[in-house]
Amino acid sequence: MTQTTLNITTLRQAIEQENVDVLATLYADDACLTIVDTLHPPSAPLELKGKEAICDFYTDNTTRHLACTIVDEVISKEKLAFTELCQYPGGQPMLAATFLDLRDGLITRQFTIQVWDE
């Protein structure tokens, strides 16, 4: 796998096309991903450590076939934030707000808050 420097276009395409191979190139080996949602409240968030665990999570997510669009990006040299508007195949909406810390063009920390209709 070749190393890629993160840019919003690459990230958007990887998420929207569910391309885990490209996503893997955007994370540092020691990256951490934290998710807060209904299943993982603030007192017990889902915490994934390392690129491999994060990629396994994304691979599992591709089985859900979410149609996602990235909007409202805020970008700086060391931070990136965006909103993800998604829809499950049955039509149920899902919304996520994601905040990324960057180091040397790679994601080192990701914090995502996600909600969906029950």
Rank of each mutant, 00 (worst) to 15 (best):
M1N: 08
T2K: 12
T5W: 06
L6M: 10
I8L: 12
T9I: 13
T9M: 06
T9Y: 07
T10D: 11
L11G: 04
L11E: 08
Q13W: 03
I15T: 04
I15K: 00
E16N: 06
E16S: 08
E18K: 03
V20N: 09
V22L: 15
V22Y: 10
L23G: 02
A28G: 08
A28S: 15
A28H: 14
A28L: 04
D29K: 05
A31D: 11
T34V: 10
T38Y: 03
H40T: 03
H40K: 04
P42T: 00
A44C: 09
A44N: 15
L46F: 10
E47I: 10
E47F: 02
L48A: 11
L48N: 07
G50L: 13
K51E: 10
E52I: 14
E52K: 05
E52Y: 01
D56H: 04
D56Q: 08
F57L: 05
F57I: 00
T59I: 10
D60A: 15
T62H: 02
T63E: 11
H65L: 07
H65I: 01
I70Q: 02
I70A: 03
V71K: 13
V71M: 04
D72I: 01
I75D: 04
I75V: 15
I75G: 00
K77L: 10
K79W: 05
L80R: 03
L80M: 13
L80F: 02
F82R: 02
E84F: 05
E84S: 06
C86S: 15
Y88S: 11
G90M: 10
Q92P: 00
P93M: 13
M94I: 13
T98D: 06
T98Y: 01
D101V: 09
R103F: 07
G105T: 07
L106A: 13
T108L: 02
T108F: 03
R109P: 08
Q110E: 15
F111Y: 09
T112K: 01
V115Y: 02
D117I: 08
D117P: 00
E118C: 08
